[in-house]
Simulated assay, not measured.
Amino acid sequence: MKRCYYEVLGVEKTATESELKTAFRRLAAKLHPDRNPGDKEAEERFKEVKEAYEVLGDAGSRQRYDQFGHAGVNGQGGGGAGGFNDLGDIFGDIFGDIFGGARGRQARRGADLRYVIELDLEEAVFGVEKEIHFPTRVVCKRCKGSGSDDGKVETCDTCGGHGQVRMQRGIFSMQQACPHCGGSGRRVVNPCSTCDGDGYVEDEKRLSVKIPAGVDTGDRIRLAGEGEAAAGAQPGDLYVEVQVREHEIFQRQGRDLFCEVPIRFSQAALGCELVVPTLDGEAVVKVPPETQTHRLFRLRGKGVTPVRGGGAGDLLCRVVIETPVNLTQAQRDLLHQFESTFGEDASRHSPRESTWVDAAKAFWNRIRPG
């Protein structure tokens, strides 16, 4: 007679979905055949736990089981119709990297590589083709990645040809791929004289990389199959990561560009036309009279078209009024004469100064009453 599924998982009938999953994970990790090779009792218990979770882990089948018992889900347990969809994901979470099993004997995919490429702002905005070179491991041509000079192999002494070794970590006993044969169960008799039995040699790889227009710092370009080689398996990928150098004029924020344009106070007071640089030429900014420092002028469409699409951004020019230096005596005399024209009614020519003075007086009155 089948045991109660709740009893099999060691939970109450009121157990939540999360509690059911936790109980299943704990028991499955304990009873999995990879941890108990040759133990028939553990194998049967594992199947029982799996069957119980397939039923109770699905809301519909659990409701039928609670109402009619095993008869209500007859044929569903053990992977029949209506089996729980998440079992594969759960097993992957629990055993993905702990138990090698058959996977330990499979050829491993080559490692992915990362390369940081530095670009000027113009190169990032308009796109560019660059040649890069970087050190990597390639399959040894002499032994074609086998690591053997003559093709002779023998059973690995460490794992006895199983490809797996048992590791004890505290109270846990786990199996993992043999570190000496990499899970193959075999070892080379006469190592290759070129790669010393490793199957790989260090080399330098050169590639031409097309950088698309509109990339920015942090963007990555994936070059499939250009990573580290792997004998008998797919090579890894190369990820080219963009780093844009600081520009002497422009700062980029997303699709917009910013720049500061210094002007004399006479230009700001009287108004003027400024010729400012853009990434594709020059543009004219009309500065109206009585312009204050840090005012922004927007040049639409003079920014960046992002690599992921969308319209071009804008160029925002911030004017900064510079105090003149290296004045001649004649210029000083003119400035003194100009300053004397303000008289006692100077505040009406400096609205921000008047506001600031009023705010300062109010502040002092608050902290020094009376």
Rank of each mutant, 00 (worst) to 15 (best):
K2P: 14
Y5P: 02
V11N: 09
R25Y: 08
R26D: 12
P37G: 01
K47Q: 07
K47R: 05
A52V: 01
L56P: 03
R64M: 08
G72Q: 01
Q76E: 12
R103N: 04
A111I: 01
D112H: 02
D112F: 04
L119R: 05
V128W: 02
E129I: 06
T136I: 02
V138L: 06
E154H: 05
Q164P: 04
F172K: 00
M174L: 15
A177V: 11
C178T: 04
C181N: 10
G183M: 05
R187A: 12
V188A: 12
V189G: 08
C195R: 05
G199A: 08
S208I: 10
T217W: 10
R222A: 08
E226Y: 09
A229I: 03
G232M: 03
E246H: 10
E248V: 15
Q251H: 13
R264D: 14
A268Q: 05
G271P: 04
C272H: 06
V285P: 08
H294P: 02
R295D: 02
R298I: 08
G303H: 07
V307A: 14
R308E: 14
R308I: 13
G311Q: 13
L315H: 12
C317I: 10
V320I: 15
T323R: 14
N326F: 14
R332M: 15
D333K: 15
Q337T: 14
Q337A: 15
A346D: 07
R348I: 15
A359I: 11
F363P: 05
P369R: 12
G370I: 08
